[in-house]
Simulated assay, not measured.
Amino acid sequence: MNIILAQPRGFCAGVVRAIDTVEQALEQFGAPVYVRHEIVHNRHVVQTLRDQGAVFVDELERVPVGALTIFSAHGVAREVERQALERQLQVVDATCPLVTKVHNHARQYAAKGYQLILIGEPGHPEVIGILGQVDAPITLIQTVEQVRALDFPADTLLAYLTQTTLSVDDTRTVVKTLTQRYPNIVGPDARDICYAVQNRQQAVRELCAQVDVLLVVGNANSANATTLCKQANDSGTPSYLVSDGSEVDTRWFTPEMSVGISAGASTPEVSVQDVIAALARFAPLHIQTLPGREEHVQFRLPPGLIARQ
């Protein structure tokens, strides 16, 4: 079986920073360290950190007063920040800097009197955080049909924002429809969509032209992993989302197939290797890596933590 690995795949700089934040907090302050929600959307990562002494909670009420608490990479609403202050929690904010950038844009537009439109996935933690970062109302949309249903007067001051982990192609279509309907609408540069999302989607686009089937390694609650899977299926390449090798179904393949493998931005490489090991039990493998963009982005740890030497 011919295996072609996407390049790039797996961890992005924001995820590396978030995981390093929890590990460094444990090393610096000792267990337990409390983390509001999953630090990233990957159960293997979460379990590994849990084994090291991290305690994941859904709400801050479960955190002892004054305890060290980490906010996840997805960001939080101001109400959560207020609750943390009331409980006198020692907060370390692991929000991805690219998500923080969206928060800043939202506040800047709101301060100038713009009505805000957010292109995002309802219920996603990043979207909940963005919606709760400004006092002004924000209209949440996801599709071209929802754009067409908007009823803002033509002279309304409008600005749009985007969830960082969406499909670049889908977002581009929604933004195009928005600008056609409201020519004076303003928004951030298209490059503000997460660089890692764009790179992984481009790699999958190139990979689908060379393989019979694609495996995307990641969890079902990871927006960028599920988007990669949808992108492949939409292009006509059968695609399956698996969290590790235990979920690989040999009925998807024949030994002569070319199989592509990619991974969401919150997926550790060990999970990719576990999928490869599962395939190796099915057929002898020839493994190659697709030439692609190398990523050298690094983010500093949040204030209050000492970087490893």
Rank of each mutant, 00 (worst) to 15 (best):
residue 35 V to M: 04
residue 103 H to S: 08
residue 99 V to N: 07
residue 73 A to E: 05
residue 53 G to Y: 12
residue 103 H to M: 04
residue 82 R to F: 07
residue 59 E to N: 15
residue 49 L to C: 04
residue 74 H to T: 03
residue 117 I to W: 02
residue 44 H to S: 15
residue 68 L to C: 12
residue 107 R to A: 08
residue 81 E to Q: 12
residue 102 V to A: 15
residue 44 H to F: 15
residue 86 E to F: 09
residue 95 T to I: 07
residue 6 A to T: 02
residue 28 Q to N: 12
residue 110 A to F: 05
residue 44 H to G: 14
residue 128 I to R: 14
residue 81 E to M: 05
residue 127 V to G: 08
residue 62 R to V: 06
residue 39 I to T: 00
residue 35 V to W: 03
residue 54 A to T: 09
residue 9 R to C: 13
residue 125 P to D: 07
residue 117 I to D: 00
residue 96 C to D: 07
residue 72 S to V: 03
residue 109 Y to Q: 07
residue 122 P to S: 09
residue 112 K to I: 11
residue 88 Q to D: 12
residue 21 T to D: 12
residue 113 G to I: 00
residue 49 L to G: 03
residue 62 R to N: 09
residue 60 L to F: 06
residue 117 I to L: 04
residue 30 G to F: 13
residue 52 Q to P: 10
residue 99 V to A: 01
residue 93 D to E: 11
residue 89 L to T: 13
residue 88 Q to A: 13
residue 114 Y to A: 08
residue 52 Q to I: 04
residue 113 G to P: 11
residue 103 H to W: 05
residue 17 R to F: 03
residue 36 R to L: 04
residue 102 V to C: 12
residue 100 T to Q: 15
residue 10 G to W: 01
residue 125 P to E: 09
residue 68 L to P: 03
residue 111 A to K: 14
residue 92 V to C: 10
residue 40 V to A: 12
residue 50 R to D: 06
residue 92 V to G: 07
residue 17 R to C: 09
residue 125 P to I: 06
residue 85 L to N: 11
residue 16 V to I: 12
residue 7 Q to T: 04
residue 44 H to Q: 11
residue 22 V to I: 11
residue 86 E to C: 09
residue 33 V to Y: 12
residue 18 A to M: 03
residue 7 Q to G: 05
residue 47 Q to G: 13
residue 126 E to G: 14
residue 49 L to E: 00
residue 95 T to V: 03
residue 33 V to M: 10
residue 49 L to Y: 06
residue 110 A to R: 10
residue 8 P to Y: 09
residue 43 R to C: 13
residue 76 V to C: 01
residue 130 I to M: 05
residue 128 I to K: 14
residue 89 L to Y: 08
residue 54 A to P: 07
residue 112 K to S: 12
residue 19 I to T: 09
residue 38 E to C: 10
residue 42 N to F: 13
residue 130 I to K: 00
residue 51 D to S: 08
residue 55 V to A: 04
residue 103 H to D: 02
residue 58 D to T: 02
residue 41 H to W: 13
residue 11 F to E: 15
residue 70 I to L: 00
residue 89 L to N: 10
residue 8 P to L: 10
residue 34 Y to P: 12
